[in-house]
């Protein structure tokens, strides 16, 4: 258990870089809020706020040098996601998100992360570059997908003859358990998470030879 400050320099890294990053984040947030407000009034502002929380939290999570701070930034992401669920009138999903992700998983995550010493070489360009390339490619791909399919006019997309009662996010929330199509992926994800958990414990396991060394 090494406290956060044991590494050289301030916890957050170079203060100027920090200021630059968070300034840019604040600017992004302002843009999101104004854009949302102009486009859709009060709900738009709410959406802008939630989007800022989600995206900003995710960015800060990647940016921050201290693992624990990253984990705390994740909280903003979870809360923002929950807010978006609320805006989509999926109340139950939103609350489950908060209860399970913030109250449960994040607390567990912190439990583990707080025991981890900081990795001082984590922000080396050579190490970050590969990840950055993958993330960038993914972002571009998702952006293209969204741009191709999203409807920016604000009007519901209706094929002729269909009534205006589409499946809402609320239904999707319940549908996770009700509709056959989502059950298998859901269970698969659960199995995958369990395997990952067991694997991480296995990796962190102390081997007998380690004791032998320390005892000497």
């Amino acid at each position: 258990m090494v406290p956060a400050s044991s590494g050289p320099g301030p916890i957050g890294g170079d203060p100027n870089l920090q200021r630059l990053f968070y300034g840019a984040l604040a600017l992004l947030g302002l843009v999101a809020l104004v854009a949302g407000g102009l486009r859709a009034g009060a709900p738009g502002v709410a959406f802008g706020l939630m989007a800022l929380l989600t995206v900003g939290g995710a960015l800060a999570c990647v940016w921050e040098r201290s693992v624990v701070r990253s984990a705390f930034a994740l909280m903003a992401t979870f809360m923002g996601t929950a807010g978006i669920f609320v805006l989509l009138e999926a109340d139950f999903l939103a609350m489950a998100q908060v209860l399970i992700y913030v109250g449960g998983i994040l607390a567990l995550l912190l439990f583990g992360v707080m025991l981890t010493p900081p990795d001082l070489g984590e922000r080396k360009l050579t190490r970050v570059l590969g990840g950055l390339a993958v993330v960038g490619a993914a972002t571009i791909w998702i952006g293209m997908q969204v741009a191709g399919s999203a409807n920016f006019s604000g009007q519901p997309v209706l094929t002729p003859g269909e009534t205006a009662d589409p499946v809402t996010a609320k239904d999707i929330g319940v549908g996770f358990l009700a509709y056959d199509q989502y059950v298998i992926p859901f269970e698969l994800a659960a199995v995958l998470l369990t395997v990952a958990l067991v694997a991480s414990v296995y990796i962190a396991r102390r081997k007998r030879s380690d004791y032998a060394e320390e005892r000497r």
């Binding site: 705390f72 809360m79 109340d91 139950f92 609350m95 908060v98 209860l99 913030v102 109250g103 607390a107």
Partner: peptide
């Protein structure tokens, strides 16, 4: 809120963080 209790449980669990 229709899910009043659930909401209270969810929000108070956040204090842990």
């Amino acid at each position: 809120i229709d899910l009043g209790v659930f909401f209270i449980l969810a929000m108070t669990s956040t204090t842990t963080i």
